[in-house]
């Protein structure tokens, strides 16, 4: 299945999802497309003033342009998501999304999708960390493998 991960640039979450035979939906994919697309010229991510306009699908013009620009990146991931894992209050080194308002909106939209959703706190000690990985693995095992879906 296509599993949305939050924080959406978490390499650990992305790796876990892959290990259990699913496809992680991570922001790196979308940013990668922007960086590799030729003909755009707004470094470092090749976003242009048109991108926040795509974000109008999710939020009106009174919402800051940075939120809407980020939502334009999240759009393909949100529309493909068949399941999601959300880690609450992770440390920055685990994965970091820059804008709190965008994070709130993304989390809200995921809840509204009525897809299998795992929400769990970021662990602060070794015992919790083991439980953290166990819960994620059990959740991923419960999902239909990506191959079956095809």
């Amino acid at each position: 299945m296509k599993v949305f991960i939050y924080p959406t640039n978490s390499l650990i979450l992305s790796d876990l999802v892959e290990r259990f035979g699913h496809e992680p939906l991570a922001i790196m994919q979308e940013i990668g497309k922007k960086v590799r697309t030729q003909g755009l010229d707004s470094p470092p991510m090749n976003m242009t003033p048109e991108d926040p306009k795509f974000g109008l699908k999710y939020a009106a013009v009174e919402v800051p342009s940075g939120v809407r620009g980020r939502m334009s990146l999240f759009d393909p991931l949100l529309s493909k998501a068949e399941a999601a894992i959300i880690v609450i209050e992770p440390v920055i080194s685990f994965g970091c999304m820059g804008c709190a308002r965008t994070n709130e909106l993304v989390n809200f939209l995921l809840r509204g999708k009525k897809i299998p959703l795992l929400k769990l706190d970021y662990p602060t000690n070794e015992e919790d960390a083991k439980m953290f990985v166990y819960k994620i693995s059990e959740f991923l095992k419960s999902l239909k493998p990506a191959e079956d879906k095809k």
């Binding site: 707004s42 991108d51 940075g66 990146l73 820059g98």
Partner: peptide, 14 residues
């Protein structure tokens, strides 16, 4: 800054 690159205006700043 916060949000400049996601607003697509970094090129304008530069």
């Amino acid at each position: 800054s916060c949000g400049a690159e996601y607003s697509g205006i970094q090129n304008e700043i530069d």
